[in-house]
Every structure is written in structure tokens, then in C-alpha cells.
Design a protein around this nucleic acid. Structure first.
Lengths: 142, 142
DNA sequence: TTTACTGCAAAATTTTTGCATTAAC
DNA sequence: GTTAATGCAAAAATTTTGCAGTAAA
């Protein structure tokens, strides 16, 4: 799982003629080991503990690369912070966001996905990806 | 239609003890007459022509109020700009976004809405609102 | 070597706020 | 008179970029 995403990024990197660097490896490992929706800053801070030599800009640019390569995707929950999460090839998940405590639950629903394709087709759109977020209160907060 | 939203905001305003001002009226009319997804800046520039005396901060704060009152909602298409659109009481529409030419098509789908509620219920969430965006190429661009 | 990458700091964007003044109640 | 709203400009918060030095191919 993790190995294959690592591989996927390495393939992307070599196809693009990117160089392999220590920093990118560290960022990649850290990103892959962290199963959350991270902002650039969060990942940067997380890394800085063990790698005080890595700069914010490198993390920023590397996360952009991850998104470009397809192993990550940018998401925005409307709080003004861009987050990155793992992108699982083929599959897709959406989010339930608690606007009180900030809890985020991921879910998948094939029927919804199918309906989305239908709607898109009706309008002549070719869909590359989508974003579905449900906002409200979680069990604890409601 | 427009009248009722105007009314809705006025009700909200009086319930909250907000004062009625010329600026807010102008911003409200302008916002309601414009059937697009506007950023604060766009609306501000649009207004400035006829009302050079209205400040950006007022537009900014007023749009926030609109969102709070329920007659508008904030949306983000991932380009780093917050937009506002009309919120139609009860109904809800989602977006098809062309990532090449920027075209935006609105759509509604009751079945999807229903499935969303089911998913939310399964996870114990009480949903206040949601956001569904499909990204891809429109007819012309694909 | 040649080309890309890094780190820092500066710049550009956007969003948000403080405050004196003005207008509404 | 009180209280809230406005406009300006300044501050925060994010995202993005320039560039000299460094490291990979």
C-alpha cells in the first residue's frame, strides 16, 4: 500500500526528470505515514522535530508535486487552509465534517458516485475528479 | 423571489438588532441582482462604479452577514478565492466546474441529496449543509 | 558541468481587524 | 445619547516566488 504509492511517486518523478533528494524522501515517508488531512504547515512542523534542516518552501513545493503526481490531493474545508490527503488510486472518498469540534469522517458511496457520473454526462462534462463534503454536527456535538 | 430574499435578510437583521444602512441596501440589491458566484473583491469593484464611497471592508462584512443570515453561502472552488452565491431556501444546488475554461454549471439531484442524508445518518451526523463539486472538462473543452 | 533542488527571506494574495468618525435608533 | 456601521489603513494569515548556494545526474 504505502510501497505502491511511493513507487507511484518515484515513477512520476523519473518520468518528469526530477531529481531524487533526501528531503523529498523524508517528506514522502512522513506524509505517507500520517493518515490525516495535513496542511503544509502541519507537515512542516511535524518534520522539523527530526529534521530541522528542512524548509517550509520545500514542504510546500513537495506537497504540490504529490498532488500533481496523483498520490495526494488538495482539499479545502472552508477554514482558509489547504490540506493534503492521500489519494488512493481508483477509489475515492468523501467527507463528513463536524463544524463544531472539527472531526472528519471519511466515507464512500458508490451509488452517489454513479449518480454524479450521470449528472455530468447529462451536461456533457467529462469528470476528472470531484469533491463532496457534508457539514454538520457529529454524534457527540449534536 | 428577490423580494423574499430581501425580506429574509431584513428579518434576520431586525432579529439581530442590526441597523439598517444605505450601504447594506446597496450591497444587498447588487448582490441579489447578480446571478453569479462573486468574490468580495468582484462585488466591491462592481459597486464602486456607482458608489465610490463604499469601502471594501463593508462589502466584506456584509457578505459575511448574508452568509450568516442564510441568504448567501460561501463556496470555494479551490483557486484560493472565496465566493458567494445566492442560497435558495430549502433547495440546494451543486456545481460542475470546467477546469479548463472555468465554466460553472449548476445542477440539482434529489436522489444524491437523499443518499447524502442516509450516509450522514449512518455516521450519526446531523447535516446542516453540504458541498458537491464535480471537476472536469465541459462540452467545448473536452 | 549542467540542471534541478533547497532554504531563506521577501513578495504577493486574501482575509480579518482596530479605531476614529459617522449615521441609525 | 447609545450603539452599531463605515471607511480607511494596518495587520494577520496563507500562498507563492526569487535567488544564491548546494547537491544530484
Amino acid at each position: 500500500m504505502i510501497i505502491s504509492k511511493k513507487q507511484a511517486f518515484q515513477d512520476f518523478a523519473s518520468a518528469k526528470g526530477l531529481k531524487s533528494t533526501k528531503q523529498r524522501d523524508i517528506i514522502l515517508d512522513s506524509f505517507l505515514s500520517c493518515h490525516q488531512h495535513l496542511t503544509t504547515e502541519e507537515l512542516y512542523l511535524k518534520l522539523k522535530t527530526d529534521n530541522p534542516n528542512i524548509g517550509f518552501a520545500t514542504v510546500y513545493r513537495t506537497l504540490k508535486l504529490f498532488a500533481e503526481s496523483g498520490i495526494a490531493r488538495e482539499i479545502q474545508f472552508g477554514d482558509g487552509q489547504t490540506r493534503y490527503e492521500h489519494m488512493h488510486a481508483g477509489e475515492h472518498h468523501d467527507h463528513l465534517v463536524c463544524t463544531r469540534c472539527g472531526a472528519i469522517v471519511e466515507f464512500e458511496n458508490e451509488t452517489i458516485e454513479k449518480l454524479q457520473s450521470e449528472v455530468a454526462a447529462q451536461h456533457g462534462f467529462t469528470i476528472k475528479n470531484h469533491k463532496l463534503e457534508l457539514y454538520g454536527y457529529c454524534v457527540k456535538c449534536s
